[in-house]
Design a protein around this nucleic acid. Structure first.
Lengths: 249, 249
DNA sequence: GAGTGGTCTAGACCACACG
DNA sequence: GTGTGGTCTAGACCACTCA
């Protein structure tokens, strides 16, 4: 066929999904069948399918087949009193979390710096996965001083919230100090846990929690499925000046 | 050769870049030569090169060759008094901006809503590109009421800052109201303007500027090269509660 | 074992850059 | 024109899933 044939195939399949001819969860024809349908080589068909898988419209499972992906979009607000559960409940989405792993490890240089501890100090490292309506949306690695919060891992495992654990240690209030955001491609494990295509980007959010005195008490890095969430940040109105450039954001 | 051959080729080239055997800006051997070097088919070589191009380590130019990419990383802080120029200067990076296009257009529903205007009202639409040390880092589309700021496009073209234009219209102070962040894959034009691989993700930042009375005066959407920048957001300390979950961010 | 997707080679032709 | 990367077909074999 002509050139850029795989783009034609991609757009055709994409259009059928948009038009509802291919319902979410439905299985696509096999590659052989698609080759015949589009009078194309397998290479072109596979390229088109791969592109749509990256966009999150298709999900390819080796040995089983290719399926139309269901992709919910969540709006996650970060500002005053940000809470995972509440954020999702407000959108009619059911939140859940599961602890995948926990260990006490010596603090790396970065973690030690974030928590204001000496490098090598024992810290809890918790790996958790967050779900929205049963669909994975983030993977979080969090770090807390193991001396200060000895039972944190066990309590979190039992479903005790971070806020309650803090409170039981005399911390009645705490703040998100700063959030760093960037995007990258996930590694294989991250893509697997998020059940997304390895070529679909993820957003990484790093933050430090501090107590009322400004002392760091927790640090976490979370990886979010970029096609399932968008973040909003409120800026304080008081005393802020705005950017001088229109390309500023 | 064996299976997953293309990953071996990818890792080998990646290692040579990390080890400095392939200097930034250097041209890679041609695909034919790489095929011989690795005793592989062209398909495997192309796949390895494509993967590295997506990671930003290589830059492929049709008809010219494949080159080792130089990728600077910028940290862009968003908070009080965020300014494009100052943000970059503080990191020893030279900022620049260029106006790619400007027009007065009827406000779309979304723009009208953001600016508090009636749909179809005339608004300036400015397309600008921001550069850091001569490397494109963002593309911004900004919208302002054309009735309120009749000469905005011309003034911006001459290098007058947004802050100064606001000031000449009696707006002495203004604020970033909210910033929405998400990541996606760029379209072809965006990838071209950012001089990045189409499979490399971009981050989209949407924001509205409001005056001291809370009235919207400007709206912009900017697309950033995700591998060249990371963002940080400060949360206000006053009266904020922190998330209840460790997977929270 | 049958069917699915995953990877690989071989070879052809096209589009673009540059002298 | 020559050399580069871009796309395509054809065919083979491997890995995974499931009956």
């Amino acid at each position: 066929m002509g050139r850029d044939n795989w783009k034609i195939i991609r757009d055709q399949i994409s259009a059928e999904i948009s038009a509802g001819m291919l319902q979410p969860g439905a299985q696509l024809p096999t590659e052989s069948q698609l080759c015949q349908t589009f009078h194309a080589g397998r290479h072109s068909v596979r390229r088109a399918v791969a592109a749509l898988a990256v966009e999150g419209k298709l999900r390819v499972e080796q040995g089983r087949g290719t399926f139309v992906q269901v992709a919910p979009l969540i709006s996650y607000h970060i500002g005053r009193r940000t809470r995972f559960r509440q954020n999702l409940l407000e959108q009619g989405i059911s939140p859940a979390g599961e602890q995948l792993a926990d260990a006490v490890v010596p603090a790396s240089a970065r973690v030690a710096a974030a928590l204001g501890l000496a490098e090598g100090s024992p810290v809890h490292r918790l790996l958790r996965r967050g779900l929205a309506d049963g669909v994975p949306i983030n993977i979080g690695l969090s770090y807390h001083c193991a001396t200060r919060f000895p039972d944190l891992a066990a309590q979190r495992m039992e479903g005790v919230s971070v806020t309650d654990i803090y409170r039981s240690h005399g911390i009645t209030d705490y703040f998100r100090k700063r959030t760093i955001v960037f995007a990258r491609r996930p590694d294989g494990e991250e893509a697997g846990l998020l059940m997304q295509h390895p070529d679909q980007p993820v957003m990484v959010l790093q933050k430090t929690d501090v107590d009322a005195a400004g002392q760091p008490i927790g640090y976490s890095e979370a990886v979010w499925a970029a096609d399932r969430v968008q973040f909003s940040f409120d800026s304080q109105d008081e005393g802020e000046a705005a950017p001088e450039s229109a390309i500023d954001v």
